[in-house]
Design a protein around this nucleic acid. Structure first.
Lengths: 337, 337
DNA sequence: TATGGTTATGTGAGGGTTCACAAAGTCTCC
DNA sequence: GGAGACTTTGTGAACCCTCACATAACCATA
């Protein structure tokens, strides 16, 4: 029975045992075609005997490739896209490193932190940037040649990016309510520093204004459940009556549902409710929530695919990939009588 | 204006420009105390001029430390612990690499994959292992000296691990229902390959049996919302009447709530409902859900802290850290009349 | 001025891999 | 039996850093 080795064995150890050069061992490891069958067998045997495993750090140093992607999130609590990101990264041969930069750190600190992250041994960056962020030029400079993709940033931003058209999505929701005959529509908007939240809110306002309808029945939340609850309570106590409520995300819609119910109002009989995101639980609320779905699997696939193709082809032209959310009609909305 | 550099500059470039040796530059980078103030200034200036950034791969190769931890999950959809894990890893100076091994891959493949993961340049592993898993000895061998911590594994497993006492948690829930006077308690159990699900189910059965109460009103779900819905429907159509329902996790409780409501039953007037986990939405369901909380922040902190201390002190004795869930009483349960 | 202790800097060797190139071996065919 | 082409193997250098040690510079004290 072999003793516990004090040091991990290397290419050279294997080579010595197999009676070949270290380069030949390297060839066997990397499945290089031109190795004689007999030699390969010897080497594989030596590898097994020594329980050899290649040192990744050395490999990364020599090749300049780590097959790691770094995912930077600004609020790790909104981790819904993570599973899809991890899945697609793995599927494309990469491992995901995840870190967080809180959105309200001073700009300089953000720069430092980003610089530090980009200097790690990673091949590419995926940056969630739902808040106003550094301009493309500055990012390029900070990342020093490491390709990056911005996810969920502003539309029309000249940078490698993947976004959902928030105006289109919010438009679907509002139009749906209008089609059902609603004329008094309230809103729980998201935090206005959040790019998506602002786009949704602006769409809400502009569509209603265009129709000559009141658009001032709006309270701001922070995208969390409690804020939806509080916002709805304040709408109910202070505001004008409304027959429909547009929540800027599903989580706040959950809070809204709770507040409405507590106030003795039924959804959809008294108030129609629309959310945004189509989180898993949305279909199972009472009643099932009408919402605007952003397909996380698609955005993850597009983001990873984009950054990987930038790694493979540095000349890839900078572009923005715009995806479209879709309306999922469930039982929380209905025609006004 | 300096041209874009074709190659990243190195310690030696900086040293040459600053007129010192590469070692001195290294000292400045690593904040070594014994460097003359004047020299340090020169070096920092050279670093700025060349926009030098240390090569992490080389550093890892030379030091054998990457300050990366690998988190292995068996189902990335249950990603609730991720934010806390990322937070605590960062707080202790580590970055988290995340990957997934699906629970039902053949054992050999699991071994291969784990071996591959452990051979990357990481300092430690955190393995979520809610399914029956490889024994400690085999894991130790596969990980080859890389410390690992098992999270959510079987209680009493002799391995470095952090667990919630599931029997205690389930006991709290069942006892709560009994205290409220319920004698006909149904259950939606989780998948029985899942260690926690089984522990909860066994607790359910053993407590009720000990009281001489029926314990056979149990349907299996898969921990997802739809399965809770389906399970409840089948309980309602085929089973004996019940006044309380214990769902093995909150997600299934959401489905159950939906099914009960659809069937014209009110919670808690007709049926008391208890969940497990205390996910964010639990407090905002209609009615707010009584549930058993497992504090994810605490388990994350304990796991990361444990693996980091193993890294720092390889002699750390193997132990299991047992944490206790707590009952959160809300409005989905009430005294039977 | 010699002694010793501290602080500051430099040197050589490694860490484990890959790449580019060179050399040796094998085969085919005239 | 030797040219040409291909296959197989080996060598040196490079990737960029840290560690252990040696040396040089400085300062105070005897």
């Amino acid at each position: 029975m072999p003793e516990v080795q004090s040091k991990r064995s290397t290419l050279h150890d294997v080579a010595a045992l197999a009676g070949v050069s270290y380069q030949t061992v390297s060839r066997v490891i990397n499945r290089h075609p031109n190795v004689a069958e007999k030699t390969r067998a010897q080497v594989l045997d030596a590898i097994r005997q020594l329980d050899y495993r290649p040192n990744q750090a050395a490999k990364v140093l020599a090749t300049g490739r780590s097959y790691m992607l770094q995912l930077i999130m600004f609020d790790i609590r909104y981790n819904d896209p993570l599973p899809a990101m991890i899945y697609w990264a793995k599927r494309m041969g990469y491992t995901l490193v995840i870190s967080e930069i809180t959105p309200f750190t001073p700009r300089d600190e953000t720069r430092d932190r980003l610089e530090e992250l980009a200097s790690r041994m990673i091949d590419g960056l995926i940056i969630f940037s739902p808040y106003a962020f550094l301009p493309y030029e500055e990012l390029t400079e900070l990342c020093r040649g490491v390709p990056f993709v911005l996810v969920g940033t502003e539309m029309g931003m000249k940078a490698p990016s993947v976004v959902f058209d928030q105006r289109h999505g919010a438009g679907l929701a509002i139009q749906h309510l209008l089609d059902l005959g609603h004329r008094h529509i309230a809103e729980i908007r998201g935090p206005q520093e959040h790019i998506d939240a602002r786009a949704r809110h602006e769409t809400f306002v502009s569509i209603l204004k265009a129709r000559g309808l009141p658009s001032d029945l709006s309270v701001e939340g922070d995208f969390e459940v409690p804020s939806g609850y509080e916002a709805t309570r304040s709408l109910l106590t202070t505001g004008a009556p409304f027959t429909a409520l547009f929540a800027s995300n599903d989580r706040m819609a959950v809070g809204a549902l709770h507040a409405l119910c507590e106030h003795g109002l039924y959804v959809p009989q008294d108030v129609s409710l629309v959310g945004f995101d189509d989180m898993t639980e949305a279909a199972y609320l009472n009643p099932p929530l009408t919402t605007v779905r952003q397909d996380l699997d698609v955005i993850a696939q597009q983001s990873i695919e984009y950054v990987v193709s930038m790694i493979q082809n540095p000349k890839m032209p900078v572009h923005q990939r715009v995806l479209y959310p879709e309306l999922i009609t469930r039982r929380s909305t209905r025609k006004i009588e």
